[in-house]
């Protein structure tokens, strides 16, 4: 394990970004990914350990114009019980309730879940369904600069993202879903709790006059990154959810997924789960 030479717990975003700009910084949020990764030697600390949980406002959840903004250090518990999220994006609360255990949810942050960039990161799936973007902040030319990247472009591989080392994930932002929006999430593992998803799936869209529109489908643990199910979306867009359409969507979902065999499950089983979950979630949409 490498030695940490400096520890800092900034209280303002500016301070944090100035520290990041100096380089060789490990960002610490809830530590639920970082601590075990360091202790098994999969990760090493950089010279500076920066605790971002004391940054004023970074865990805030708010509505700004027609957008909902979740601060990077908001915890899974913060999201699960937040009035705004329960009202406008209950899909996120549902996902949060299937996340790890109460103790982990109380520590785990949304920024950590996204930046850890696991193909099985649970909160990423509903955020993809909601069409979210990440806001990255950096200290450039003496001021705070921000840029937005759509979440479906953010991941480049397992544990890899477009975030530069001088950038902090300040927030994740999505447009307030319309009143016709329905969305569902399903994950699988051998136990209900404390389970890294074998497969996770999210489907959402607007149900208008019996037709499913602006459909987004997202899948976890069936590829090198969490992914959008573009062929499934195409099979569903603007359609009435008839038996035939659902059958098409199930086939398309298996085309979208490219799972592998690993210690948690075989490729065959993952494909099977994708099919079952697609059908199940579409059934939920019909029932809604």
């Amino acid at each position: 394990m490498s030695d940490i030479k400096h520890y800092i717990a900034p209280t303002t975003l500016e301070q944090a970004l100035e520290t990041l700009a100096l380089g060789r910084v490990t960002i610490l949020s809830g530590g639920t990914d970082l601590t075990p990764q360091v202790s098994v030697g999969r990760r090493h600390f950089e010279d500076t350990l920066m605790n971002i949980r004391r940054i004023e406002g970074l865990s805030q959840i708010s509505m700004q114009g027609d957008e909902i903004r979740i601060g990077g250090s908001a915890t899974v518990s913060d999201i699960r019980y937040h009035d705004l999220i329960m009202k406008y994006a209950p899909l996120l609360c549902e996902t949060a309730s299937h996340f790890a255990s109460e103790q982990i949810r109380n520590a785990a942050s949304i920024g950590g879940n996204i930046c850890n960039a696991s193909p099985a990161g649970d909160m990423i799936i509903p955020l993809l369904v909601l069409g979210a973007s990440v806001e990255l902040a950096s200290w450039t030319k003496g001021v705070v600069q921000t840029r937005r990247i759509p979440l479906d472009e953010f991941f480049t591989g397992p544990g890899k993202t477009l975030r530069n080392s001088n950038e902090l994930l300040a927030a994740v932002i999505f447009k307030k879903p319309s009143a016709d929006f329905v969305g569902f999430f399903r994950k699988s593992g051998p136990r209900p709790a404390l389970e890294i998803s074998t497969v996770s799936l999210g489907i959402g869209g607007e149900m208008k006059e019996g037709k499913f529109q602006h459909v987004r489908v997202a899948m976890g643990a069936v590829g090198p990154t969490p992914l959008r199910g573009r062929q499934t979306e195409a099979a569903l867009e603007g359609q009435k959810l008839t038996r035939t359409i659902i059958d098409h969507a199930v086939l398309a979902a298996q085309q979208d997924a490219s799972p592998i065999d690993d210690i948690r499950a075989t490729k065959w089983y993952r494909n099977h789960l994708v099919a079952v979950f697609t059908e199940e979630l579409l059934y939920n949409v019909c029932q809604n």
Binding site: Y7, G30, G31, T32, T35, P36, E102, Q103, I104
Partner: peptide
Amino acid sequence: GKTINSCLMMAVD
């Protein structure tokens, strides 16, 4: 007021 796993939390926090 919130429970956490102390094996995952850094003492400095």
